[in-house]
Design a protein around this nucleic acid. Structure first.
Length: 278
DNA sequence: GACCAGGTGCCAG
DNA sequence: CTGGCACATGGT
């Protein structure tokens, strides 16, 4: 590709394509032999060749942090359960890493996610970016709109991005963030349960969305967001009638401190293979 | 045209 | 605390 000089970095136990297609982010663009991912306001063009990752010179540390190249994948693999479905998930999803996402973008995106397929979440993200996001030179997509910008819109305006009943929640939460009623940065230093409690006070944020934000933006790798897929998987794995909350607790206890990672592999494997545990 | 999608909030029992 | 339902939109 023409453009800035590329440098190679070591990236063992990393699968770029699987990672960006695993339902964590919704705006990665295929580009050249790799992907362009707008990380906050920095377009990150990454290509993978085996255990090497090629990124533009100067963006190595951004790439290391965003792709979480410091996570101990070998230890995480070792924590996987030994049932056939979990082994198959590991075999087929090896190399997926939990990204470190910008906090507001992650929160806002998952507020738009309830009862939507991943392709629809992608469409809403692109719509919001195109209408309200800052243009970034060299980027295929606009930045995710700031909370302040979305706080200025009206619900009717937001509906043009086809958000449906999510528009009201997104606008209200944008207002809470923009006004300082909640400080997303300060959640970083709080225990997970306290951070979750604060997030759940926001309109449109329940336990599942809060857990996605904790896992994908706050590096709480033991957090398990239980959506319809994970619910079906866990019900099959641990037969017996349990509430969603109980399923979350069971998996947290059984999977351990990387439960969120294991959850992500089970989720992605179930989706791509269209199978559930026997 | 029913049915479902990375849920949440609210209400009845 | 638990189960049931509405909520917008788009794709099989």
């Amino acid at each position: 590709m023409i453009g800035p000089k590329f440098v190679e970095m070591a990236a063992n136990e990393f699968d770029l394509r699987r990672t960006v297609e695993s339902g964590q982010i919704f705006h990665a663009m295929p580009y050249g032999d790799g992907w362009q991912i707008l990380v906050d306001r920095t377009p990150l063009h990454a290509e993978q060749r085996g255990a090497k990752l090629r990124v533009p010179a100067g963006l190595e540390s951004l790439a290391r942090e965003y792709f979480s190249l410091h996570h101990p994948l070998k230890s995480i693999y070792a924590a996987f359960p030994s049932d056939p479905f979990s082994r198959a998930a590991l075999a087929n999803c090896r190399g997926i890493r939990i990204l470190k996402q910008p906090k507001w973008e992650c929160l806002a995106t998952f507020i738009t996610s309830p009862v939507k397929q991943i392709s629809h979440i992608r469409q809403m993200s692109f719509g919001l970016r195109a209408r309200y996001g800052e243009k970034i030179p060299g980027s295929l997509v606009n930045a995710y709109p700031t909370a302040a910008r979305l706080a200025q819109t009206t619900e009717r305006e937001l509906q043009k991005c086809r958000l449906g009943f999510r528009a009201k929640n997104l606008r209200a939460t944008a207002t809470a963030v923009a006004s300082g009623a909640i400080d997303l940065e300060s959640l970083r230093e709080k225990p997970t349960h306290e951070a979750r409690e604060l997030l759940c006070q926001l309109p449109g944020v329940g336990r599942k969305v809060a857990n996605c934000v904790l896992l994908f933006a706050y590096e709480r790798l033991d957090t398990v967001p239980v959506d319809v897929w994970i619910e079906r998987i866990l019900r099959a794995m641990y037969q017996g009638k349990s509430t969603i909350l109980e399923l979350e607790r069971i998996s947290h206890r059984r999977f351990g401190r990387y439960a969120g990672y294991i959850q992500q592999y089970l989720f992605h494997h179930a989706r791509v293979s269209k199978t559930l545990p026997a």
